[in-house]
């Protein structure tokens, strides 16, 4: 997520950071300056920011079972789903910085929604630890990424159904978190580190951020044939 100057100012009020700030006054002219904009920072593949090497290997293995590579296109690992999640967990999403996290924390009804004290970064650390403990206990000391694809599917299915238990974390809840973040990474704009070369969009036939489809509306029920475009353009424009 972008951390823009203006948003930082807002954050300083929320978290008591010592950043000098003054409120903006709107008077006589629109407060506009040339080229002022707040694009997101582009994720550059490279060393893991949040995950340990072991955690990253597990998440990449999960990505390839949730979204397997096949004749339809790349799988979750090649698409960069683990890179996406790594960078998200290192940002405000990982710490729930934008959410209401004041105590007291209490267990509510399902209709009252999220009441967990742990932000996603902590849930991943605990969840991946519990998953490793579950796998090594059940499969002769082997971690998730060392299992056969059939065994990996068996583990994920048990997590999804609430049959996989470990004292370290709620593995059913962690599965939902993983599934959500995997599909976010696969279908979000590639600028966030997943959906490499727009492989998720190509799978669907989503043409991306072209921003003008008047021709499509004028001629209904036609297959759209132009390749997708993302916030940073197309891969062939950058080579």
């Amino acid at each position: 997520m972008p951390s823009t100057r203006r948003r930082l100012l807002a954050a300083s009020a929320l978290f008591g950071l010592a950043i000098p700030a003054t409120a903006r006054t709107l008077k006589e002219a629109l407060p506009w300056s040339p080229n002022e904009a707040y694009p997101p920072e582009r994720v550059v593949p490279g060393p893991w920011v949040f995950f340990t090497a072991g955690e990253a290997a597990t998440v990449e293995a999960i990505a390839d079972r949730v979204i397997p590579a096949d004749e339809l296109g790349p799988g979750g690992k090649e698409a960069g789903c683990a890179v996406f999640i790594d960078r998200q967990l290192a940002g405000p999403y990982g710490t729930s910085a934008w959410l209401y996290m004041r105590p007291p924390f209490a267990r509510g009804t399902p209709s009252q929604g999220l009441q967990d004290e742990d932000p996603p970064a902590v849930q991943y650390r605990k969840g991946l630890g519990a998953l490793t403990s579950y796998c090594t206990g059940r499969y002769g000391g082997r971690r998730f990424e060392a299992l056969t694809p059939q065994q990996q599917d068996e583990v994920l299915t048990a997590m999804e159904k609430g049959e996989a238990k470990d004292p370290g974390a709620d593995l059913r809840g962690f599965f939902e978190q993983l599934l959500n973040n995997m599909t976010e990474g696969f279908f979000a704009d590639p600028i966030y580190g997943g959906n490499k070369d727009m492989c998720g969009w190509r799978l669907l036939g989503f043409p991306g951020t072209r921003y003008d489809y008047r021709e499509v509306i004028a001629a209904p029920n036609q297959k759209y044939t132009l390749p997708p475009v993302a916030l940073t353009g197309r891969p062939e424009w950058m080579r």
Partner: peptide, 8 residues
């Protein structure tokens, strides 16, 4: 070039 960002 910034607005159409579903994730954000």
């Amino acid at each position: 070039n910034v607005a159409p960002d579903e994730l954000r």
